[in-house]
Amino acid sequence: MARQIGDVIVDLQNISLRFGGVKALTDISFNVKEHEIRSIIGPNGAGKSSMLNVINGVYHPQEGQIFFKGALRKKMEPHEAAEQGIARTFQNIALFKGMTVLDNIMTGRNLKMKCNFLQHALYWGAAQKEEIAHRIKVEEVIEFLEIQDIRKTPVGRLPYGLQKRVELARALAAEPHILLLDEPMAGMNVEEKQDMCRFILDVNDHYGTTIVLIEHDMGVVMDISDRVVVLDYGKKIGDGVPEEVKNNPEVIKAYLGTSH
């Protein structure tokens, strides 16, 4: 493999997050290193999605600190996280339902587009050039994810598996440094899962994109992750390379103790 795991890029220290009386996350610390595939696993309601929401500023933890590229991150809004190169997909598909596949993916490039609305209104010179330059980038992503034949389709008409893929395309269009994927393979059949795995590995390998992945399929997780962190009831119960995690008695107990 060409890629080499780098320094710590996101460092979460003693994160606690509450919603009223519900403790979604309790005193969690772990880090993500550059270029790695870092998975978060755990039973339902363990706090995995909340963890991603903390990383990209959708939720603000009551306690704890987040270091991003070595610097302490102040309260960060989601669009600021995006500006820092963090992109993500959602557990419940969050595509823009009224737009085509192409337009959805084009939105992924908005931070790289510099023209203002007056230039857009005239659609002349710079604005048109910019639109086309970004369209070319988007077409690369479309080709990479093999969704050429649906580019003009409204996303609402697509089957679930393809919607998940379009959502990944939108995230990739931003050329992120860090990609947060919340159950990208949920509800897919074996073949679709294999495709998705291949895309994730390719992105990681080709572009060196750091990936934080939430996934319930243990086979997939153990296969493609560099390191895995395990949450249960909002607490961290395991952290390490797949081998370590698999043999961690607490992890085994958590998984045997639930319906998984």
């Binding site: 959708v58 339902k97 337009d103 857009h120 639109e131």
Partner: peptide, 19 residues
């Protein structure tokens, strides 16, 4: 892009911000 921003906010504002 202006229109896409509008439609993104219309269709799903959290996702629009995250982008």
């Amino acid at each position: 892009s202006t229109g896409r921003a509008w439609m993104a906010v219309r269709d799903m504002d959290v996702a629009a911000q995250v982008i």
